[in-house]
């Protein structure tokens, strides 16, 4: 092979290797760093292993917000209309955090089933419902209906 060609072949091989390793790194860390969205029902059913970082969301239950007397800790419950999950957060809540409002929180479920949030997001537009929360509500709604229908069917037999 022409030496010039050979050199260029080495270069190309090196570049392919570099790209491949970049892709490998990307895929590996993607599997480590994605945060799945889980609905309150999934959490309440124990489908989420404790200690795994997830996103959870739903509507903040009316009257469920309780603050610490000393620090900034706050507990509240979120619902998808079917199940409720208690959430604890220590920090500044976003401006639009309000009872009845849809929120998304990043954090993990502890062994007692409490969702410990490291970040709470409420979007800045009141017209806007986080899409995940929307889907969770819809899902819970459909599940609820299906259960009711099943129950009604059973009752009628």
């Amino acid at each position: 092979m022409h030496p010039q060609r050979k050199k260029r072949l080495h270069l190309i091989l090196f570049l392919v290797l570099a790209v491949a390793s970049a892709v490998g790194l990307a895929m590996y860390s993607l599997s480590q760093n994605i945060n799945l969205f889980q609905t309150p029902t999934q959490i309440a059913n124990g489908e989420v292993p404790p200690g795994r970082t997830i996103r959870a969301g739903g509507l903040v239950v009316e009257g469920s917000v309780e603050r610490d007397q000393q620090g900034l800790g706050v507990t509240f419950r979120v619902t998808d209309g079917q199940s409720e999950v208690p959430v604890f957060y220590d920090g500044i809540l976003p401006d639009l955090f309000r009872e009845g409002q849809g929120i998304v929180a990043l954090g993990e479920v502890n062994t007692e089933g409490l969702f410990v949030a490291s970040e709470v997001l409420a979007k800045h537009d009141e017209n806007y419902m986080p899409p995940e929360v929307q889907a969770a509500l819809e899902q819970a709604h459909q599940d609820g209906k299906a259960q009711m229908e099943a129950a009604a069917k059973e009752a009628s037999y």
Binding site: A22, L25, A26, S29, L30, Q32, N33, I34, N35, L36, F37, R55, L106, P131, E132, A135
Partner: peptide, 30 residues
């Protein structure tokens, strides 16, 4: 990498696998 991180949640959602987000940690690692 940015394109992947941005589109991944959408593709995942399209395939009906559920909702997820790619965190800042991933972008930083890349």
């Amino acid at each position: 990498a940015v394109l992947t991180g941005t589109l991944y949640p959408l593709v995942y959602d399209f395939m009906g696998l559920g909702k997820l987000s790619v965190g800042a940690a991933w972008f930083n690692t890349m």
